[in-house]
């Protein structure tokens, strides 16, 4: 892999430069076109409205189902965003361009993954206030935000690898969730349980094991996905 990197400069600084260059390209493109975040935000708000239609408005009941509803909405939005990001990249032929550049495939992965992470996070930052308002739940909870950031990062680690595969398959819209959900299941369980604890007013110590599980998932799959990314994107 090392021969794919810019010759003569495998220092830490140039790694960051490469990752940030890939990330910057995605952010710049999105800031001009808004083809990913805008439709996903609208979709997510609709999901919240649908949830408030179908759920019993009894406050006690809401407290028990809201964490589940929140994470269903987040995972669906995340999947749609990933699908769209890679489908757009394929349409525009962006991936070929990136593959021609002398950037290591692991660095390319981190650039794409951070981009996916930020897009998902932006959508969630817009969704959460709407969700909290509709279901009358607390919004300013540092613990909840920690869970959201870590779980979203976990989604991005495996999601980026699977989206890069799924985009080249037939039935890509269905294949991404089918690949993603079983692997991300522990993060979804942990995030929902930690959110439940936050809404119940528990202290951080009560749900720190869930946070630890998500963090472990993040580290493991960031490394594994980065190491195997060359086998996904190389022709």
């Amino acid at each position: 892999m090392s021969e794919q990197r810019a010759p003569g400069a495998p220092t830490g600084a140039s790694w960051w430069a490469a990752i940030l260059a890939v990330l910057w390209k995605d952010l710049l493109l999105e800031s001009r076109t808004r083809e990913i975040v805008t439709p996903i935000v609208v979709f997510s708000l609709l999901v919240i409205v649908i949830f408030s239609f179908v759920l019993d408005p009894n406050p006690r009941l809401i407290e028990s189902v809201a964490p589940g509803a929140l994470w269903v909405a987040f995972t669906f939005a995340g999947i749609l965003g990933l699908n769209r990001a890679f489908a757009l990249e394929k349409e525009r032929g962006g991936m070929e361009g990136l593959l021609l550049s002398p950037v290591g495939r692991d660095l390319l992965y981190f650039g794409k993954m951070l981009g996916a992470f930020l897009f998902m996070l932006v959508v969630e930052i817009i969704m959460l206030p709407a969700f909290s308002a509709v279901f009358n739940l607390p919004l300013v909870e540092p613990g909840l935000w920690l869970v959201i950031v870590l779980a979203t990062f976990g989604f991005a680690t495996v999601g980026t690898a699977f989206a890069a595969m799924a985009v080249n398959t037939r039935a890509r819209e269905i294949l991404l969730p089918v690949l993603f959900f079983p692997v991300a299941a522990p993060v979804i369980i942990a995030a929902a349980e930690a959110t439940r604890a936050v809404y119940a007013g528990d202290s951080f110590a009560d749900y720190s094991n869930w946070v630890g599980l998500i963090a472990a998932f993040d580290v493991i799959f960031a490394v594994v996905a980065a190491a195997t990314f060359e086998f996904i994107v190389n022709e």
């Binding site: 690898a161 079983p182 522990p186 493991i220 799959f221 594994v224 086998f231 996904i232």
Partner: peptide, 21 residues
């Protein structure tokens, strides 16, 4: 190649799934 990547990711996932469960 795709399947091999999934085969590795899936197997590493097993103990994490078990802990969560």
């Amino acid at each position: 190649r795709y399947a091999a990547v999934l085969g590795i990711i899936g197997f590493i996932d097993v103990p994490i799934v078990y802990m969560a469960a």
